[in-house]
């Protein structure tokens, strides 16, 4: 029996990889205020996953394809209706959620799939899931490293970046697509709620400790992995739902950070 045959060992590895991935993009999500977009992605890619399941295709492929469509849709809708991107994002969230849930209902025995889609089942993660998360981490990590400067510039000061010759729209689209890739990779393994929790909470906590991007990123990754491991431990120790325990641990890091920082001031 190899090390990877133990479900708990696989879960630990997945939590570390997912935490690193979530922390990396989480910094951008928090700095650019894209939490709602991230939440919408988790819901809006749902029908793609269901259709892929119904047709017997690869779930990840289904999620990726719908995700790209959603990213382009949000970009187009928010440009057309002026500055109110929130409403357009909300419409896409509702549409995706309803379509996915409606499709699931067409199949029998759907309630199990649906709840694992929401809260994940990190204890049943497969070796294939692990390899995919690992590959995504490598790709997303290197893209973020190579493009760090333009992403920072276009995010912090769009008009200044445009004046300096950056194609701001294209860089924003790239970032949205990176978030999409991360969300689609994380959701099947850890569930929508946990994916959002791992992306937003550790990065928001890290932001409280530093204003320098490299420090914030390192801290976010560290806190995400730590909350993943802590949640997993709590789940094994007290027999709680694993995904939810991790999400609560991530919230805990933000809560403690906020308390410590306000006491410090």
């Amino acid at each position: 029996m190899s090390f990877w045959d133990d479900a708990l060992h696989r879960a630990v590895a997945e939590v570390i990889l997912a935490g690193a991935l979530a922390g990396l993009v989480g910094v951008h999500v928090v700095l650019r205020r894209l939490s709602f977009f991230t939440m919408a992605l988790t819901h809006a890619t749902f029908p793609g996953v269901v259709v892929a399941a119904l047709l017997g295709l690869d779930l990840l492929l289904g999620g990726m394809v719908t995700g790209v469509a959603v990213v382009l849709g949000v970009a187009a809708l928010s440009r057309r209706t002026g500055r109110n991107a929130t409403a357009a994002t909300g419409v896409l969230l509702s549409a995706g959620f309803a379509l996915g849930a409606g499709l699931v209902a067409l199949r029998s025995g759907f309630s199990r799939d649906l709840s694992s889609y929401l809260v994940g089942s990190i204890l049943t993660v497969t070796t294939r899931d692990l390899l995919i998360t690992c590959g995504t981490l490598l790709v997303v990590g290197s893209v973020l490293a190579v493009c760090a400067r333009p992403l920072l510039f276009t995010g912090f000061d769009p008009s200044g970046a445009r004046a300096a010759g950056y194609a701001v729209g294209a860089w924003t689209l790239l970032l949205l697509l990176l978030i999409e890739v991360v969300v689609v990779t994380l959701v099947p393994a850890v569930g929508t709620i946990l994916a959002v929790a791992l992306i937003v909470a550790p990065a928001a906590a890290a932001r409280l400790w530093s204003a320098r991007l490299p420090v914030v990123t390192a801290l976010a990754v560290g806190l995400a992995i730590a909350s993943g491991l802590a949640g997993l431990y709590a789940s094994a120790r007290w027999n709680l739902a694993a995904g939810a325990s991790i999400a609560l641990a991530a919230t805990g890091t933000l809560l403690v950070s906020a308390l410590l920082r306000s006491a410090h001031r």
Partner: peptide, 20 residues
């Protein structure tokens, strides 16, 4: 913490509490 981040965290935390 920005509005959207705190909303996201409250959402996931409360829902997770329900799931637990």
């Amino acid at each position: 913490v920005t509005d959207d981040a705190s909303t996201a965290v409250l959402l996931t935390a409360m829902f997770s509490l329900g799931v637990v």
